[in-house]
Amino acid sequence: MRIICPVKRVPDTAARKSTDPDLTLDREGVETVLNANDEWSIEEAMRIKERTPDTEVIVLCVGPQQAQQTIRKALSYGLDGAIQVTDDAIAGSDAAGIAQILAAALREETFDLVIMGNQSSDARTMLVPAMLAEYLDLPALTYVSKLEIDGATLRAERETATGHQVVEAQAPAVVSVVEAINEPRYPSFKGIMAAKKKPLEVHDLAALGVDPGEVGLEHAWTQVLEVTPRPPKQAGAKVEDDGSGTVGAKALVDFLAAQKII
């Protein structure tokens, strides 16, 4: 089996984010990390690898040169190799643009499964997995909290607000996972060392047959007109309870009543 895991390099959540003059997110003036939701997709791929003989798991990352650090981090979980797509024309691509590029990279590969996180912590559109599946003309199993594989048959539980939906499809397919699916391992020291030597293929848009005139900031189908900082929330009143609960409870109820909530 061959599994490809698209991952994203994102700013650390704790980092103070800012936008460049072209209104894109400043990705270079901040500490970057592997997108948190991708830890679950990588873990799921590794668990499939561990129980299925002859399984190869490959990382796929669209990102600048500096993304190689993120790629090595992903490889440190024990994956077999990586593909990077990097090109100056990619910067500022929106979800559809990224999906198009990922699809072009995946068309060069054979795979049974594409497994990815359901969202990225920076853009959080949750659009890419379904858009990618559409570009590849494949079924998508999204928001998956449990994945069973029997030959080419995939049986997935898709998380809903009140439970889950059980869906079956045939591989090849795109799968996006939610955090309920597993508990990610920590990379081992051996894995971290081995990551440095895993094969990394780097492609630009021309190598993938993607027209630079279809991606990037200027050609995106959506655009940002304006970005303004939100005034930070200030701390309001703080009441100390007397230990019995009565002082705190009364103050809280009075507050809710003053807000006309009760």
């Binding site: 930070p232 929330k233 200030q234 701390a235 309001g236 009143a237 703080k238 009441v239 100390e240 309870d241 230990g243 019995s244 609960g245 002082v247 705190g248 409870a249 103050a251 809280l252 507050f255």
Partner: peptide, 14 residues
Amino acid sequence: SIADFAVVGDLHKV
């Protein structure tokens, strides 16, 4: 630091 109203106390009592 972002709460409009805060109670410092044991939630099991409050």
